[in-house]
């Protein structure tokens, strides 16, 4: 089974020191202090791909649109068991929306004869939750979104569980080749071994620029987009919490008092 996994590099928003500040253009954020990680859902998609490969054979190809710095997340996926990698990188790709992003991914995978293409169900930075499903339609393939469980029925069909509100699983049968968008929590992403990391550093990452994609300039970036993010702004928020000030001794004492006054402890 030959599998593609789309991996995005995103700022680590779970790190309390990752401050998000809008830059001077109003269309970007200051990335100078970000630490970057693989998008959470993509980490689960990588694991799912490697589990399937271990059980059913085949190869895993990692695809990313990003700058050279994104090699870090690509190499980590290779170290865990990925076989090949493609990175799409051209300044003309800047400001791509969901459609233009999906078109770029399509250009990288369309001739590969893949059985299964996986993306994350949602990227934690822009949160469209739509690239995978859009890619499926561009490729003319069936799709299922927010998949938490994947089982191989035979070499033509999968049984997948889509996770809905309240944790309900909607089980579907789907024909391959197909596109799945993977939800978090369906497996336990492994850590890369030292041997894996060493071997991954020797694997080639194929870089594709606009010319290599075969796409026209007006199919990518802002020109190729149907709905671009035009202007960032600081959200208007309602009343914020009353912040208890002081060192941990002071704040915890104040909190304990409040809870006592309210009859909660």
């Amino acid at each position: 089974m030959n599998i593609v996994v789309c991996v995005k590099q995103v700022p680590d928003t779970s790190d309390p020191d990752t401050e998000v500040h809008i830059d001077g253009t109003g269309r970007g954020v200051d990335q100078s202090k970000f630490s970057f990680v693989i998008n959470d859902a993509d980490n689960y998609a990588v694991e799912e791909a490697i589990l399937l490969k271990e059980k059913h054979g085949g190869e895993v190809t990692v695809v990313n649109i990003g700058p050279e710095a994104a090699n870090q997340v690509i190499r980590m996926a290779l170290a865990k068991g990925g076989d090949a990698a493609i990175r799409l990188d051209d300044e003309k790709f800047a400001f791509s929306d969901v459609l233009a992003t999906a078109r770029l991914l399509q250009s990288a995978v369309k001739d590969g004869g893949f059985d299964l293409i996986m993306a994350g169900c949602l990227a934690s930075d822009d949160g469209y939750g739509a690239v995978g499903v859009t890619l499926a339609q561009l490729l003319g393939l069936p799709h299922a979104a927010m998949v938490k469980t994947v089982e191989v029925i035979d070499d033509k069909k999968l049984k997948v569980g889509r996770e809905l509100e309240g944790g309900l699983l909607e089980m579907n049968e789907i024909e391959m080749p197909c596109v799945l968008t993977i939800q978090t929590g369906g497996n336990e992403p492994r850590y890369a071994s030292f041997k894996g990391i060493r071997e991954a550093s020797k694997k080639e990452i194929k870089v594709m620029d606009l010319g290599a994609t075969g796409l026209a300039e007006d199919q990518v970036g802002e020109a190729g987009s149907c709905a671009i993010m035009a202007q960032y702004s600081v959200p208007e928020v309602g009343e914020l919490a009353e912040i208890l000030e002081g060192d941990p001794g002071t704040t915890s004492a104040r909190l304990a008092e409040i809870l006592k006054e309210k009859g909660l402890v």
Binding site: D97, A102, Y128, G129, V133, A145, M146, E165, C226, A227
Partner: peptide
């Protein structure tokens, strides 16, 4: 709705019809 159902439809539908779309 940008829900478990809607997220399974929107992007593909928009591409099929060639219409601009956004989510969430």
């Amino acid at each position: 709705g940008n829900t478990g159902q809607g997220m399974d439809v929107i992007g593909a539908l928009a591409v099929e019809l060639g219409l601009p779309f956004t989510t969430d």
